Amino acid sequence: MSIPLHPAPPPPHQGNDSPPAKTNALAIAAFVSSFIVGMTGVVLGHIALHQIKTTREGGRWLAIAALVIGYSSTAIGVYFITAILSASG
């Protein structure tokens, strides 16, 4: 019985060779705009989530992040406006 000097080569790759899913452009726009105008990020984020659901594109987490940032910044803005108006009145 002899011992092989070289290990056997690894088996060929049998995974999915398709290119990765394209990121939804509206999800990117929603994420960027949520830092500038919160409600724009919210609207675009909801539209992007619907598109991602129907087209199976990537970018779901970008759209969700845009919603979280947009809703949070809107809530903070409403809080500050309410505080300013109640303090001056």
Rank of each mutant, 00 (worst) to 15 (best):
M1C: 11
S2R: 08
L5R: 10
L5T: 14
P9E: 06
P10K: 04
P12V: 00
G15C: 06
N16C: 12
S18L: 13
S18W: 10
K22D: 08
A25R: 13
A25H: 11
A25F: 07
L26P: 02
L26F: 11
I28D: 08
A29V: 09
F31T: 07
V32P: 02
S33P: 01
S34L: 11
V37W: 03
V37Y: 02
G38R: 01
G41K: 03
V42G: 06
V43I: 15
L44C: 12
H46Y: 15
I47D: 01
I47P: 13
A48S: 08
H50P: 00
Q51Y: 15
I52E: 04
K53P: 01
T54E: 15
R56V: 08
E57K: 06
R60N: 05
W61M: 12
W61H: 07
A63G: 05
A65V: 05
A66V: 05
A66N: 00
V68Q: 03
V68G: 10
Y71E: 00
Y71F: 13
S73E: 01
T74W: 07
V78N: 05
V78F: 14
V78D: 03
V78T: 10
F80W: 09
I81L: 07
I81F: 09
I81R: 00
T82P: 11
I84V: 12
I84G: 15
S86H: 14
A87E: 04
G89I: 01
